[in-house]
């Protein structure tokens, strides 16, 4: 095949329709076992609590719950409920959706943030989103608090917290 015969552009919709092609939509479905740690953490969320694991060797209070301390290489020593408040460690202001489509100018921006939770060890944060806040006013170090869904709507998911808002 001579290279100059290859059209150096994308196909138009019309050309695409006519092109010889094969398509395949994979059907990939999973149901991951929670096991011990994730199970406890999700149950905590359903009850409106953020649970953290303690390691008596390194003294860390770690989020989310884990059944072993990955640094000390030993089982953790139980869970405690930490606060549902924290400090913004870092954040991004997103102008595109999950599927890469652009948000319309009047749609609120998504603000995913790492939130260091009060009562857990330094650097122990969770990922969530900020809400009820002007994106221009969000700052690293800002104090935020969880806004929970009503009890009846909670299912044991990180979505049981709607978002974190400044307080």
């Amino acid at each position: 095949m001579k290279i100059e015969k290859v059209p150096m552009k994308g196909l138009t919709s019309e050309e695409y329709e006519k092109a010889l092609k094969i398509s395949w939509k994979p059907k990939l479905q999973y149901a991951w076992d929670n096991g011990i740690a994730i199970g406890k953490y999700l149950q905590g969320l359903k009850e409106g609590k953020l649970l953290a694991s303690c390691c008596n060797r390194c003294g860390r209070i770690m989020l989310p719950v884990r059944s072993f301390c990955e640094l000390c290489w030993r089982p953790t020593d139980g869970e405690i409920a930490v606060n549902d408040t924290g400090v913004v460690n870092t954040f991004a202001i997103c102008h595109v959706n999950w599927d890469a489509s652009r948000l319309k100018p009047d749609e609120p921006r998504h603000i995913p943030a790492v939130i260091e939770i009060d009562g857990a060890s330094k650097g122990q944060g969770i990922m969530h989103v900020l809400g009820n806040v002007d994106p221009a006013k969000v700052k690293i170090g800002m104090k935020v608090k969880a806004v929970w869904k009503p009890v009846a709507e909670r299912v044991g998911s990180i979505d049981d917290i709607r978002f974190f808002e400044p307080y």
Binding site: G35, I36, S67, W73
Partner: peptide
């Protein structure tokens, strides 16, 4: 089936035994 352990907990269980036998910390 193995619903009582997540994939991480499953591997950890095997790893603890292997490192224990070897007498090594990871």
């Amino acid at each position: 089936v193995s619903p009582s352990l997540s994939f991480k907990e499953l591997t950890y269980t095997a790893a603890v035994k292997a490192y224990g036998e070897a007498g090594l910390h990871p």
